[in-house]
């Protein structure tokens, strides 16, 4: 188990106003005081970071440049690849769809020389624009499993408009939980293929006007938008329930190992509970 270098997160930026509120369980790793005085020094580190607010709308390519510039601005010695057009050695295990918020993004950074992890992340966070913030960083120890293998499940939250009837949410969730197969249509270039989402929906709950679900990693990955489409596809039942409206927000809350009632967050191992809504 890698040593966690835990960081307290600065709170009062404009981006935070846009970002989902961090409930105590979602941000458990970030807020845990237990190992906040780490003085770890490492050349390779893994981070959990948040991409929220206006940064929801930037692409994966934009995100790479954002990281490179913040690292340069912070004066951190990120390593560059050899070759004709050198690239900074930052790897992102998977891409977040444009438009989605996340408090559960991950990256692995390789530096040209060892850095003091806590200080580096503090400088990096100061260099980021609002909406990007590292919540936690750990040194990569020799023989550690690949980062992507630590991200076997992701906890998503889908927020619906505040005037949505919570009973509609509960009805759709119950119908999906009860279903054997949940078939959605995926549009690929010229063809449309059908896919069954059900095997990859580890668990889901309704909570007020939002739905939280643990999705298992798959190839291609199940998108939160597809989960919404499946939820919205359940027709009104005998009780006269309404189909769900367009969500106001998709948020990837955390990633890690699938667990009972949530995920065990990849870097800290702390349980992020399925049931804890991000809404106050």
């Amino acid at each position: 188990m890698p040593v966690a270098a835990t960081l307290s997160s600065a709170g009062s930026d404009a981006g935070a106003a846009q970002s989902p509120s961090r409930s105590s369980s979602d941000a458990v790793a970030a807020r845990s005081p237990s190992r906040s005085s780490s003085e770890a020094v490492a050349a390779r580190i893994r981070v959990r970071y948040a991409k929220t607010g206006k940064l929801r709308f930037i692409s994966a390519i934009d995100l790479g440049r954002l990281w490179e510039r913040a690292l340069r601005k912070a004066g951190l010695p990120i390593a560059y690849s050899e070759g004709f057009s050198p690239h900074p050695k930052i790897s992102f295990p998977d891409a977040l769809p444009v438009g989605c918020a996340s408090t559960g993004e991950y990256a692995e950074l390789t530096f040209a020389a060892p850095v003091a992890v806590d200080a580096a992340i503090r400088d990096l966070n100061a260099a980021f624009v609002d909406g990007c913030e590292v919540w936690q960083a750990v040194p990569v120890v020799h023989g550690a499993p690949r980062l992507s293998t630590l991200l076997a499940a992701s906890l998503w939250q889908i927020d619906y408009p505040s005037d949505t009837d919570p009973c509609d949410v509960d009805a759709a969730v119950a119908a999906l939980r009860a279903a054997q197969r949940v078939v959605i249509a995926r549009h690929r270039k010229s063809e449309t293929v059908e896919a069954d989402l059900r095997p990859f929906v580890h668990d889901l709950v309704g909570s007020g006007t939002c739905v939280r679900a643990v999705l298992l990693r798959s190839e291609p990955p199940v998108r939160a938008g597809e989960l919404h489409a499946a939820l919205a596809a359940f027709r009104p039942d005998a009780a006269g329930r309404q189909a769900l409206p367009e969500p106001t927000r998709f948020t990837r809350v955390a990633q890690g190992a699938p667990a009972e009632n949530g995920v065990d967050e990849a870097l800290s191992g702390a349980r992020v509970a399925l049931g804890a809504s991000g809404d106050p």
């Binding site: 404009a14 709308f57 934009d62 444009v98 438009g99 624009v129």
Partner: peptide, 22 residues
């Protein structure tokens, strides 16, 4: 903001870039 998912290259309309003066 709710319209941004419907347009191409939405990040061109968000502002929030580095070094802006608000």
């Amino acid at each position: 903001e709710p319209l941004l998912p419907q347009v191409r290259k939405p990040a061109q309309y968000t502002g929030g870039e580095g070094n802006i003066v608000v």
